[in-house]
Design a protein around this nucleic acid. Structure first.
Lengths: 251, 251
DNA sequence: CCAATAGTGTCTGTGAGACAGTATAAG
DNA sequence: CTTATACTGTCTCACAGACACTATTGG
């Protein structure tokens, strides 16, 4: 039996004497990776629109890494949880209104990831449906379509093309970690629907799976496996130069 | 284009003026959930030993939560990563020598999880093979066999039985999160082998899967699915009152 | 009719569940 | 011979890949 001397006789006495400034303390931030699906109108009237998988980035307007693009983030208040802080940022930076999916992703902690001081970042991943977005975009806050090949990111907006080196801090790594998490979770959860409009065709849903997984799926097999997560509505999507498709919604 | 005034003309000038003490700062700790497999010698000479799934806990010898059992943990130094700190704790508290599996699990951040001050805990999960352990256990550091039923923990050592309320801070929640992660990962990774001795029978391996997943598996099916992760050695395990079994090792 | 997508039917291979049956040690 | 575990063979069912086939629209 250990017999270490105890300095206090009760917990309250101990707490009264506890000096919170005794240790060096790092900063703790959150970053929120906001993913969604964008629609790229097809050039040919007969073809369907192509979906793309996109992330919301903010151009930094201050040092360090000024003018690089970054994942929305900020420090956590002493009286809020990381999830609270993430929700707060989503409202202020992305103007999200409706229900969103938000989960903690990973905590990034490289010693020199921020040159100012030691900063831990509890990264979160949010999935949103752009239709719920009261937000038009600006010069400094933009959606970028994501391509990931050979471990290298390629992010494109209307007028910009970014690669890993154009991102602030370790944010390229955070994005890759998020994509990986999403690729896994899309297979065994229902989170895709958080990025979809309320009603959608199975062709659109399949496209979203394809761009996230980065591979083609077989329509017949896809329909079979997705069938129990989805219900048909009475409506059809018409107006295209081919057979109309039934609109479905999440079951 | 936004035209926010910038206070500094270069990153180095900005950094020189940056005051790290300007904000309130929380503490950042790591906790390392150490899981392993224990062997319970059978009473009947003819039966095989029962395996159990166990976690290493430390009795707290100071306030707060004095005398409750806790997951080994400590604060992260300003010049080490969370993973470094986790390795350091494994060496000092568990005396682990050989290669171990260690991954970041989740960051726990409830505002009042520690009564002293705001403490973020970056929880990690370690899987170890007890054979690599230069450590005998003591009154204040013990292995507890884990049972999880209806979301309630039941932890038993030679002389103690603990439930959720006997654990310090939010450590019961951390243990449950770890079990869940392990249950998922055991299905699609090779991490079981990090808890196994170098050579083992397929019966033993199946038992480990069973205690972690919390359900019985069918021997024939188990052997088929595990076959490509494993190679037979020339050796047999004999001495039991029944047919000897081939010893396998990780492929 | 053409182009393009929507949607179905069905064959095949893979792999898990189920269960019966054979093999082999110690006492 | 008994007990207990090791290990194999095989049937069935669920399900994904593959592919052919039909359906339906706008122009």
């Amino acid at each position: 039996m250990t017999n270490k001397p105890k300095r206090y006789s009760s917990e309250s006495e101990f707490l009264a004497d506890y000096d919170v400034t005794k240790f060096d303390r790092p900063s703790v931030a959150v970053n929120v990776l906001v993913f969604s699906v964008s629609n790229n109108v097809a050039e040919n009237w007969r073809r369907t629109d192509k979906k793309s998988f996109s992330v919301l980035l903010v151009r930094r307007d201050d040092y360090p890494d000024i003018d690089k693009w970054s994942i929305p983030g900020g420090f956590i208040g002493m009286q809020e949880t990381a999830l609270d802080a993430a929700h707060r940022l989503l409202r202020s930076k992305a103007g999200v209104v409706g229900g969103i999916y938000l989960e903690q992703l990973y905590t990034f902690d490289d010693i020199d990831r921020d040159p100012r001081t030691r900063v831990f970042s509890i990264a979160h991943m949010a999935l949103i449906n752009k239709a719920n977005l009261h937000y038009s975009g600006s010069h400094d806050v933009q959606w970028f379509d994501i391509e990931l090949a050979d471990g290298k990111l390629l992010l494109t907006s209307d007028d910009l093309i970014l690669t890993d080196k154009d991102l602030a801090f370790d944010h390229a790594k955070i994005i890759k970690t998020g994509i990986e998490r999403l690729r896994n979770k899309i297979e065994y959860t229902d989170i895709v629907f958080d990025m979809m409009p309320r009603e959608f065709t199975l062709g659109e849903l399949q496209q979203v799976y394809e761009i996230i997984l980065g591979r083609k799926l077989i329509p017949a097999a896809f329909r079979r496996t997705i069938a129990n997560k989805v219900v048909a509505t009475e409506k059809m999507r018409t107006g295209s130069g081919h057979r109309p498709s039934v609109l479905f919604k999440k079951k």
